[in-house]
Nucleic acid binder design. Sequence first.
DNA 1: CGAAAAATTAGAACATGTTCCAATCTTTGG
DNA 2: CCAAAGATTGGAACATGTTCTAATTTTTCG
Lengths: 240, 240
Amino acid sequence: MAASIGVAAESGRREQAKEERRLRIIASARDLIRETGETDLSMRALAERAGVSVATAYNLFGSKRAVVLSVLEDERDYLERFAKLDPGDPIARIFSVHELSFSYYTADPDFYRTLWRSLLNTSQSDETGLASIERLARTQAIWFDLLATAVKDDCLRADPGPALLLESLAQVTGGALLGWATGSLPTRRLTASVGFGYSQVLLGSATEHGRPSIQAANAAYAHVLRDNGVAPGLRSAEMF
Amino acid sequence: MAASIGVAAESGRREQAKEERRLRIIASARDLIRETGETDLSMRALAERAGVSVATAYNLFGSKRAVVLSVLEDERDYLERFAKLDPGDPIARIFSVHELSFSYYTADPDFYRTLWRSLLNTSQSDETGLASIERLARTQAIWFDLLATAVKDDCLRADPGPALLLESLAQVTGGALLGWATGSLPTRRLTASVGFGYSQVLLGSATEHGRPSIQAANAAYAHVLRDNGVAPGLRSAEMF
DNA sequence: CGAAAAATTAGAACATGTTCCAATCTTTGG
DNA sequence: CCAAAGATTGGAACATGTTCTAATTTTTCG
């Protein structure tokens, strides 16, 4: 009888109905993105599919971006799969997390490309940033820990510190996702391009002890990138 | 009598009038962006200001993004100022070009933020990519040369090669511009954040000979970033 | 000059994200 | 069970980028 979905449903009849509507909207958004593919989903279509009025969608989410963001958070069972990663050396773990993270995207590129295209929309109502607060906090904490551990285990120098490294990694990620979403970075280069960027950034702060594994990842990604070179006309890296 | 504006005006009366309209549109777009600031310019307002119909704007440019891109290319006398850079050691030159490039943005942040917000719009009609072909070719050639020279002068290892390094630098740039345009990266961190990312990437491939100057830039940028830390609530680096 | 070609024009049209409103349920609490 | 509070609803409204069409203006060229 009790709703097992969602976190801590407030179990008033009113709140419960609200939660159901919320979930229905997220599910409909997911399905619509899957079906329409390239075409972005429209709030009107979304509302109709979810059996809900447009106004309700806005009451519950506030913006289209918030809906899409919820779809993203809903789809990726990130934390669970992250917990299962074997805790090898810190460097290997960093790239494992990276590959895990991007495996979602490359496994279902049409879906996630549309999704990210929506999320990266700079024109949309900007209340929610690029990521919801909680999601941001979680992912940032994970990555900060990964880097801090690598420093503690003498794989990375303490020099610039995890915070600044994280900022650089985040920008590589953002640039790559932007390029991917706009079509200038093909899917087959996505993971390698980001991985190469990561490894290059980390190499800059590698200790003697940490260098070999980073170098290995770097070489592997570089190899993939060279094997999947872009045709001369297709611009891959856009320099501004 | 002869129009000295533009490149190789085709000097037919028809082409000349077209060119004048084109320039008027670009100028109006520039002014409107300057005046409205945060609000994106609308094609209807732009057309009215330029004394031209909306249809004409689309005939001449094809899309709003193309107009804004033209404004960007028009504003930055990049090549001229680039030519004046003293040719010191290759590494110093790389960071000089970087600072020159971003000095436009930080000197007039409101203007360029609005502009980039428009350019990075993932929803807009996608005919023109993120950069026009010619502009892209020019900038990419400049940066490729910078990196290739650094390799030839034994500042960077030949290992991953200029092409891959350029791809990483471009992604750092794209991520930073995205963050800046969406407001998650404050202007006072912009140049340093990108510079730090560049230096970190380049450090990963530095030779013994090139390392010191890259390290110097790296330390300087890191210092700026630490001095301009973000308040705890404001997210600076978004990790996805 | 005068006909043909080329371009611009006003305006409607379409789909979009978002907001607003009065009317209408639905749940809650007494 | 009933009044009050809370939420949803349909629909209109607004501003946006973009496309289209029919009419008009402007340039070209013989």
